[in-house]
Each structure stands twice: as structure tokens, then as C-alpha cells.
Design a protein around this nucleic acid. Sequence first.
DNA 1: TATGAATGAGTTTTCATTCAT
DNA 2: TATGAATGAAAACTCATTCAT
Lengths: 194, 194, 194, 194
Amino acid sequence: MMTAAASGRPSKREAIIETAERLFADRGYDATSTALIAHEAGVPAGLVFYHFATKLDLLLAIVHERPTPGEVLRTAARGRSVHRRLRAVVSSMAEELERNRAARIIVFREAQARPEIAERAAELFDEATTTVAEILSGAEDVVAEPDRVRTAADLIVSRVFLDIIALGQADTATKRHAAMIDLIEESLTTPHAE
Amino acid sequence: MMTAAASGRPSKREAIIETAERLFADRGYDATSTALIAHEAGVPAGLVFYHFATKLDLLLAIVHERPTPGEVLRTAARGRSVHRRLRAVVSSMAEELERNRAARIIVFREAQARPEIAERAAELFDEATTTVAEILSGAEDVVAEPDRVRTAADLIVSRVFLDIIALGQADTATKRHAAMIDLIEESLTTPHAE
Amino acid sequence: MMTAAASGRPSKREAIIETAERLFADRGYDATSTALIAHEAGVPAGLVFYHFATKLDLLLAIVHERPTPGEVLRTAARGRSVHRRLRAVVSSMAEELERNRAARIIVFREAQARPEIAERAAELFDEATTTVAEILSGAEDVVAEPDRVRTAADLIVSRVFLDIIALGQADTATKRHAAMIDLIEESLTTPHAE
Amino acid sequence: MMTAAASGRPSKREAIIETAERLFADRGYDATSTALIAHEAGVPAGLVFYHFATKLDLLLAIVHERPTPGEVLRTAARGRSVHRRLRAVVSSMAEELERNRAARIIVFREAQARPEIAERAAELFDEATTTVAEILSGAEDVVAEPDRVRTAADLIVSRVFLDIIALGQADTATKRHAAMIDLIEESLTTPHAE
DNA sequence: TATGAATGAGTTTTCATTCAT
DNA sequence: TATGAATGAAAACTCATTCAT
């Protein structure tokens, strides 16, 4: 007997998760009723609670069942120069966040009031920062010390996360990213005048 | 006949706003009942709706009746050097955000699902960035072009805002800020190698 | 010192009554709040309860402070023939009901659930029927017995009241009234074939 | 799997409708709380809103889920003479209205302030009038023209409706009906003297 | 006679969750 | 694994009425 997933038939559990993700991102967790999720997912109301014991469990499933930005970053192209690596890192992060926009919004928005999720948000942020720092420090032309590389990584990750979770002005993002890359690049490739 | 405000007697309207601000920040807008607000503010439940037609109106009052970070920044100390200005700007922003932490959290958290508030969030961010850029460009030792100054301002504001609205690790903030100031300072005072 | 009424200045009490009458007729007694009445009348909320001890008292004032249809009917023109009297009676009743439409609607609508008002509704109806019967029986060419005249009066009053209180199709009323007059006239002027 | 209806078990939805009908008629729509309805129907408060999205929907269900007086009239006995038909029509209408008294009261009382229901009230009235006119015009001894038959039908329906919706004096109704039948009969069976 | 804030009981409605089938 | 009715606690909001001034 094949599972729903293996058979290609979209499992109802998946449908619930995906619908919930979209709705939670659009209207917020509290403002989304389980009945609405069921309705929009095309499943009976009771089924939500067959698959998820509570509404919070459904939220946690969304929050944990996505690849982390860090994982994706690790596969980013690694050119020789800081410049190339910066560009690869920023664009692959932006892309990933865009792809999982709903999940990211949810994580960061709900983090404020829910310790469980705050922990996850911190995890995602730290992992991303660490990965970016690693990538940058591997470039040929880096002259900055590890701490400064970390600071640069932190600024980059902060700015790109903020795009998504609060002020997503997609139209101006590319230009802004280029300017940021430029500034950061210089600070990593210029000898630090003490 | 004296008004409540003039008489020094704390108006019940103020009590409601302040209590709501605290609770909204702690538990989220949706998760805070108007009954709880009234209870904690020490007023009868009905009074909330005498002063604010709807719960959303109460939220909007909180969101609009606070000084903006930009206003506060404008009064920040302006030393001669980029370094001094950066320090003044970062610390006064951090201080202001800390003071109005609740209101800021609310604005940015609730912005996701509420266009009216999203607009306000963008306003606050833009005003802060513009003000920071202005302050920095007035320093004696700036060599960077206006665009770069703006980019630097954007990075600073992003990072400090993010502290508050999502991942406020107050313990490491000071150190992180110093590192950021250092990096940014250099990028503004070092001639740009084209 | 002149009273408000005598001075020509519209008393606020009057304003409240008139506004309440309109609103009660449009939206129903229960669905009209005293706050709305005060607002639309342009008076402060507290004043309603200065003039009327309870909301029900305000309703009763409206219900009792209008001339009855019977009073108006008594002044209707009295021609010689049944025909003339019928026409006079029907048109003066229709006119009166139109003028006091709101009050009539209120009386009959609220009568269902409020004994005090049901009594008033029955009063208005009986008085009107009795007056119409009197007027008709005084015509020269009446041959019908008093009971039949009363029956005719009852049908007329029923039909005209119904126009107002439930199915007021003002456009077709005139034609309908003419046909009714015609039918009734004949029944009163033709010797009853036993 | 049997449905509640098929199983003979009284459905809770039905219980809600019937209880609401009674209470709305007795105390008025606005003055009847959904909590009271639920309580008297013996169901939990929440169930009302599972079956009816809003209180108004419950009212509309009552207003639309009853046979119309016209339908019932169509099955009224049709004797040969106008007299027999009049008696059959009046008594079957009175009976029907008595049986569905609550629903009729509700329709006509609530029509004033609610267009949706006003439409239904007009429908019920028109259908009844048309059916009565049809029945009367089929009698052997009718000499009146169609327009006059319609006028007679209108008077009859008006009077019987008014009994129910506003001034239901059940005690005198029978006598009044007999007198009305008498008057109307004559007007339909006597040649019209132009 | 006027005023507007205050009060608290009551209203409709929502909703996570349970349960019998 | 599904299903849809059922449940009851809690939510936002309304409102007649009171009261100090």
C-alpha cells in the first residue's frame, strides 16, 4: 500500500499545512480560524484535528517543516572574490526568503509572544549569519578579521530579513542590495586603519 | 471646570491606552482581550468602547500617538566626526526604541496583516533613515557620497529596528553596535577606491 | 419668562420626540438606541433621560401625543350622498395616516409585543371605524342597516390602515381606493335582497 | 446512515426554528435573544450559529420555510355559489393564518424595517389576493366584472390579514367574517347599476 | 436645564476542540 | 482516515441608565 505522498496524490495533511501557511501569513495566526483553513483547503473541519492535536501544533509544523535559510545558503555559489560571494549570498538568501516568505513572516511575527517560536526565529537568524560569515571568510581577497566579517554578515542578514518580515519593498530591493554589497565589500577588502 | 488632563488626575483614557500598549506588546493584539485591558487598567469593560469605537481604533491610537524615532533622533548630539555622530545616533535610537519598545513592537508586528499600520511602519522607518543620513552627512570627515551615506543609514536603522521588533538580545546589543559603528565609520571616512 | 414652545424656539424635548419618531418608524424601537436619537436630534446623550425617565416613556409619548385619526375624520366634509361621504372619508383618512405615518407604523408594529400599545392601537382603530360608520349612516341615500354600515366602515378602515402599516403601495392606492369606494357604495345604497 | 429527519428523531435545527418562531412572535425579533432561543429549544447556545450564520438568517428561514397562504387557499373547497366559496375561502384563510400565526406576525411586523422581508410580505399578500379572486370568479352566480372581483378579494384578504397581524380579536372574528361575507357576496351577485 | 463620562449587564457571534459514526 | 454536528467558553461590542458637575 502506498502512502499518499508516495502515490503523488496530494495528501490532505499537506493541503492543510499549505493553506494554513498562506492564511497565517496573510491574516495572522490568531485571526485565522481552523474552520477557515479547513474550508480553503477543501477538507472537512474535523480533519484538521485529526492531523494536528491543536492549532498550535499546526503552527509549529509550519515553522519546523521548512528548510532553513542556512541550508540553502550552504549551497550558494562560492566565487573567488568577496564581491562574487557577497552577490551569491545576498541573492540566494533573498530568493529563499521570497520562496518561503509566508513561513518566515509567520516565524518572526509570532515570535514576539511565543517563546517556542522565538527560539526558532533566533535559530534561523543565527544559522544564516554564521553561514554567511563562513562563506565570506573563505574568499581570496578578504583582509578583515573574523569579527568584522561576522559583523558584516550580521548586517547583511538583518537587512535581507527585514525586507521580508516587515518592510518588503520588493521593487527597490535589488538596488538597495547592490549598494549594500558595495559598502560591505569595501569594508572587508580594505586594510583596517587602526 | 478643569479637564482631567489639566487637573493632573490621570485620565482613564490614558490608562486604557497605556495598559493596552503593554499588553499588546506582551501577548499580541489578537491575544489580548478588551476585558483584560479594562481589568488591568482598573476601569469597567464598557469604558474601553466609550473612548474607542473598536478595538482596532485603540490599536491605531497607540500606533499614532507616540513621538516618532525620527523626531527623537533630530535632537541627538552632533559631534564633529562621523564616529561621534554614529555613536550618538545609534545610542539615541536604541534608547528611544527601548523607551517605546511596546509601541514599536506593535507597529511592526501588526503591520503584516493591516495596511493602515504597514503604512505607519514604513513612515517610521523612512523618517529614521533619512534623519540618520542627514546627521551623518554633516560630519567633518565624511568622504563618502550621499548614496553611500544613505546606504549606511539604512543598515544602521535596519539593524537597530530588528533588535527591537524581532530578536531583541539586549545583552549583546552594545557590543554588536560598537562593531557596526566601526565598520560603518570606516566605509564613510575612507576614500572610495573605484 | 417665555417657555421654549411659546418663544418659537424649537424645544429640545420636541426635537427628541420628532427624531425618535422618525427613527423608531424607520428601524424599529429596539433597533434604535437612545444615543442615536440624541445624536441625530443634536442634543447630548444625557438629555434624553432628563426629559423621559425611560426609553419606553419616550415611545409612549410618541404614541399618545398625536391627534387620533378619528379626530381628524370628524372634520371630514359631509356631502349628501354616500358617494361623497365615502370619498371624503377615505381621502381624509389616507391623508391623515400619511401625515402621521411614522407614529401609526410605530403603534401597530410595537403593539404585537406590548400590551400598553396594543390597547392604543385598538383604540385608534375602533374610534376610526365608529366615526366612519357615523358619517356614512348620515348620508341621504343610505338604505343599509346599521350593522352593514358598520361592516363597510370596518372594511374601509382595515384597508386604509393596512396600506400604511404593512403594504404601503402609495402608487396604486388611489385607484384601489376608488374601486373600493365603488363596491362599498353600491352595497350601502342597494336594497338588501334577503 | 440515516439522517436526523428520516430517523424520526427531531432535528435540533427544527427545534431551533420552531422555538424562534414562537418567541419572535411573542416578544419581537429584537427583544428575543439567541441565548433564550437556545435555552428554550434545549440546545447549547453555539448551535444556533452552527445552523444559522446570523440571527437574521434564522429569521429569514422562518419567513421562507412555511407554506404560503396562497398554497393552502388553492385547496379550499369550491362550491357552486359565491356564498359557498366565500365561506370556504374566508374560513380556510383564517385557519391557515391561525396555524401559522407566529410566522405571519413575524413577516408583517418585521417587514417595516427590512426590505428583504417586506418583499416577502408583499408576495404573500398578492398571492393570496390573486388566489381568492380566481376562486370567486369561478362561481356560477358571479355577475361582477373581474376588476370588482379583485377588489372584493383585496378587501377580504386585507381584513383577515389585519386580524392576525395587528388586532387579532379572535372572539368577534366569526361574526365579523359573516357580515363581511354577506356584504361582499351581494356586491358580486347583484348586477352593477351604472 | 444641560452635559458627557461612566457603568455593568446583556447581546451576537466566534472558535478551538470533541465526538459519534 | 474521514466527517459534520455538537459544545461551551470567551470574544467584541451595545446600550439603557446614572451621576457629578
